[in-house]
Design a protein around this nucleic acid. Structure first.
Lengths: 231, 231
DNA sequence: CTACTGTATATATATACAGTAG
DNA sequence: CTACTGTATATATATACAGTAG
């Protein structure tokens, strides 16, 4: 029941202000398809859609689906029954569930429960095992990250790391940000703390690579969180 | 892919107390069906299942489904294609689906299809009707936004706007960013383009408020996208 | 009995064709 | 032109039938 509202309020983007217009009925059909899918675990047939909207010809419904496909909301396949691929719908399967911690120390300590749990589209760079930490003042200033920003850290293998990537190295009692520098077969790690120095290492086995900074998000809900001074 | 583990760990309850135990293959088939549904938004056909498990006769697969139905995990309907009702599965539905456009001009033009559709947790500030645009160089530099960042724009009413909020004002042919300034009962809009000026307005009816900048995300997958110069 | 193969068949379903109305 | 109706048709698909192997 809880979720019913959200579905009725059209979870598929209305593209608010004239953005990529769906007609009223196109939007309703798309919403119906998602609602039906969620409720039944299978899709409505074109006939089901027609019945719902009192459209008597399957051709007409098919044309609406064609319009939705042209506008990028669907992908169809000739003759696949109840088999439209609805794009941009989260069925709970591919979004990664990402815990959010108040600091990187807390996140890596191993025994803290997350501040919250968000679902993050993998397109943002999240993987299985990713987590978010709230940035402290100055912690990642060189990357344009401000205090309070949510920094996404995704697990990675040393072999996957590109030169220049920002990584987290830590143990259970301390963790911090480094820039990874690759020169030939040896690596070095530049401490990103103000005044931090470069450490050279060839044996990365025990360095405790937690992950790599995959991105960050700054939420601008309170004006106070805006950075009003140009820099 | 992301939650594949979770699925393989079998999200479908085994009905705890010896009640109707599933055989190994029955469990695998059920998991596959859910996994497939999540990935594609439509169900696998009996033939799809057969292919996956190298079972060559549709009859055999059908018998497994019959067994799953008898044990209370499914409800079937004669001859409904890709239309098994899978019981006890949560198909999600709380994340907001957000279209992503290459620029704010494209987003507000009304006839562009989105670059992609991402699902965004409402905790990031997304609402029904929100969308993402890729920032152009300098466009929102004062906020710390760099070229290529994904800027989240969420619909908002004028009455909800706080003093200092960054908003998008536009028509179908042009749109840009402004800072909203409230002084008593009158508003002013400071153009955020370099060298932009402040416009005072008391009649907001026709201003074309598209939405408010609710946040931005910077993905750091390529080193080139990192802002290496401190500012 | 279970666990299949392999073929045949009924049908649900998407699509195509031929129109009509405004 | 859009927004349909109504019929016909190809086909994807679920099911049934007839077996085989262990």
């Amino acid at each position: 029941m809880a979720r019913t509202d959200a579905i009725h309020e059209s979870e598929i983007p209305t593209k608010s202000r004239g953005v990529q217009e769906l007609s009223e009925i196109e939007q309703q059909i798309l919403d119906y398809m998602v609602q039906y899918l969620r409720a039944n675990t299978f899709q409505p047939s074109i006939r089901d859609i027609g019945e719902r909207f009192e459209i008597k010809s399957t051709k007409t419904v098919s044309e609406y689906l064609q319009a939705l496909e042209a506008k990028g909301y669907l992908e169809r396949h000739p003759s696949r029954s109840r088999g439209v691929k609805i794009l941009g719908v989260d069925l709970g399967g591919d979004a990664v569930s990402v815990p959010c911690f108040s600091s990187i120390a807390v996140a890596t300590s191993g025994d803290a429960s997350p501040e919250s749990l968000l679902s993050l589209d993998p397109q943002f760079g999240s993987r299985e095992g990713s987590f978010l930490v709230r940035a402290k003042a100055g912690e990642l200033g060189v990357l344009g990250v401000s205090e309070g920003d949510l920094v996404l850290i995704s697990p990675i293998e040393l072999g996957e790391l590109e030169d220049g990537a920002v990584i987290v190295i830590g143990s259970s009692d301390a963790a911090s940000f480094f820039r990874f520098l690759r020169s030939g077969s040896s690596f070095s790690f530049e401490d990103l703390k103000p005044g931090g120095r470069t450490t050279v290492s060839e044996q990365p086995a025990s360095t405790g690579l937690v992950g790599r900074v995959a991105g960050f998000y700054r939420k601008m809900d309170e004006v106070g969180s805006l950075n009003l001074t140009p820099h």
